[in-house]
Design a protein around this nucleic acid. Structure first.
Lengths: 210, 210
DNA sequence: TAATATACTGTGCTTATGTTCACTTGTCAA
DNA sequence: TTGACAAGTGAACATAAGCACAGTATATTA
């Protein structure tokens, strides 16, 4: 029952989230009121009632600052309120299903928002050293961000069959050349509109555990 | 000035953290009191004053539930958020002070616990490409973990003067050779017990934003 | 065109919450 | 054995904060 919020309600919700991030606890009615230039605490109460009714917050009536964010509000598990995103880790890719399908899921990686801002970002574990010279090693996590367009030279995660591979992307007519960053390996050349082939995202971050 | 806490103070601090996790906002004086069987709010106030004086919390006087946890409180023990650690980012290093001193602090990086388990881990931003062949580039974050002993070949964060540098560690008698991973650079050789020199930690992770 | 929802103002009230002060008790180090 | 510190009790107090109710205005929907 995801009921949409009005602009005003969303602004109030965002303010509450920001305050929780900034100070570690929710704002009071009067703090919300003064932030929005509202002169009556009742004006705020109406908003909070609406947010609660629509499932974005839970309140503990009577309690000072007794506002809890629900997952709907974007508090996946209180993570988002601390500059954190949970990025799905994509494991073995099942044929035909979208990359973020549950079948492919292999847990989550918590990532600081300095590394990811957008939604839809996924993580995968690199196999092989074909991107060694680009500083991407066997066993590294890479974060991939789906894009509407990829440019020559972009490092991308490409799906070929049920395998994900990380390479530099070079479109060549109706083919694509996937170029490794390691002289020991040669390029992979695939038909652009092969059913089996797609580019899942551009690599936006690398994380290595040593 | 990391002053130790008494058992009771630690218990109170833990309770505050638990409540923040559980409900999303800090407890009131009376909630703390009733949890510990304390009958006077003043009993609680003394604890909070002590926690504040010792740097584990910050309070906004007069405000209901105006308790903020400081990094000190979070670093003590499991982070308030599951699976996540907040790692202090070390910037320019002031002479003479410990690496984690406030003067050096440049914010925090949230990191999944798959990358860090221990306390005391710090992050710093790499300058220069001297570790390029080890897959550590200019601008990368590295996570350093202080150790009691370092072994030949370890990649470490070393402090020389007020500069941090990342290199491979090779002890040689009462000198240390800091070896880059880039043929364009030569090694740095320093006296082991120079005042100006110390090894701050072993590099346990690398994170790159592209 | 009546009903409903949003978005408020203004006032008064209740209570949840933090503060202050005086005093007690036990422990531990100088 | 004095003094400092931790850890309280108890009561009075001030105020921060939530709630209720009576209105007003506008827009949208049935």
């Amino acid at each position: 029952m995801t009921i949409g919020l009005t602009n005003r309600q969303r602004a109030v919700l965002d303010f509450i989230k920001d305050e929780i991030v900034r100070r570690g606890y929710p704002p009071s009615f009067r703090e919300i009121a003064s932030n929005f230039g509202i002169k009556s605490t009742n004006g705020v109460k109406v908003h909070l009632d609406a947010l609660e009714k629509k499932g974005y917050i839970n309140r503990d009536p009577g309690l000072a600052r007794g506002i809890e964010l629900t997952p709907l509000a974007g508090a996946e598990d209180a993570s988002i309120i601390r500059n954190i995103r949970k990025v799905p880790i994509v494991g073995r890719i099942a044929a035909g299903v979208p990359i973020l399908a549950e079948e492919n899921l292999d847990g989550y990686l918590a990532v600081d928002t300095t590394f990811v801002q957008a939604d839809g970002v996924f993580a995968l574990v690199v196999t092989g050293d074909s991107m060694k010279d680009a500083g991407i090693f066997h066993g590294d996590y890479v974060l991939g961000k789906p894009a509407s367009q990829y440019f020559p030279g972009d490092i991308v995660a490409a799906i070929i069959g049920d395998e994900a591979t990380v390479k530099r992307y070079y479109p060549e007519g109706d083919r694509v050349r996937l170029e490794p960053a390691n002289p020991a390996f040669g390029p992979i050349i695939v038909e652009k509109d092969l059913d089996d082939f797609r580019v899942a995202g551009k690599i936006v971050a690398v994380m290595r555990k040593m």
